[in-house]
Design a protein around this nucleic acid. Structure first.
Lengths: 144, 144
DNA sequence: TACAAAGTTAGGAATAATTCCAGCATTTTC
DNA sequence: GAAAATGCTGGAATTATTCCTAACTTTGTA
């Protein structure tokens, strides 16, 4: 999936309904923001950008939408920082994340194959989070 | 490292000072609670158990201690739930975690070897978090 | 032993992220 | 087109965490 490719509202609406979620203006806007600006926004980031498109939208609406989208499996919640959740679109192949301790940017990272095979037997694994922290190439270069 | 093995205050004090952290009564109590009750307590869990030993201790003291211990690398902060941090002792070999969506218990999980080798080049990786969610064997058995 | 400096703590106030609630608005279904 | 279901708002509430300031302790030094 090319990063520059955008999802149309039509496509996103399709995804919503096949996930059993009713479409609404704001909900679609939240999903579109996550799907098309692939910068792993926080809830507050999303509230701000939705607010620009639809002034007067309520924070609660954004949070509600996010919870519904996560619940429906269309969006993944990333717990990388204490107290703040970031959100990522679910459609692409499973992947981990890297957060730069210097600039705070979040990068996608490949997932080693067969991660789930390495787990103790007897557990039902529903989801895997693999998160790295450190310094990104950009910041490493600037530090010199 | 056997789970039933307890760390003495003497050992923990040694660890603190070799990590460059001054020992204090409350700080030692926080570290001891994390090191010896290996149940991955939350900050609030810790505040409650420290309170029993030392009534009147301030929440801030517990939070301060935790931040200092994490900073010093003696304790690892786990971000498994939105809004709540759990804490784990650092001494044992690196490992991942599993949180049961039913009972909320947190289990240690082996880390597949060479996780860090799978990352994109150019990043400086300082820490790796591998977290699983799902249903634990206990709860699976009870569900039948 | 005394003193200054540095570090630690208490406790209440402040902040930040998130959720709850109640009433109104919109959409769906029949 | 009416009833039922769902969605939205905005303010209040909740929860986890941090900030702030004054008091207290410990440490290093003379």
């Amino acid at each position: 999936m090319d990063k520059s490719m955008k999802y149309s509202d039509r496509q996103l609406t399709e995804m919503l309904s096949s996930a059993g979620v009713r479409t609404s203006l704001h909900r679609l806007a939240v999903l579109s923001a996550i799907a098309n600006d692939r910068c792993h926004p926080s809830a507050d980031n999303l509230y701000r950008s939705i607010s620009e498109l639809y002034p007067g939208v309520s924070r609660t609406t954004v949070y509600n939408s996010l919870n519904i989208l996560v619940e429906a499996g269309l969006v993944k919640e990333l717990k990388l920082e204490r107290g703040v959740s970031h959100f990522d679109f679910m459609l692409q192949p499973p992947h981990g994340h890297f957060m730069c301790d210097h600039c705070g940017r979040i990068y996608d990272m490949g997932l080693p194959p067969s991660l789930a095979d390495n787990t103790e037997p007897g557990f039902r694994i529903d989801s895997i989070d693999l998160n790295f922290r450190g310094i990104c190439p950009d910041c490493l270069a600037k530090q010199q």
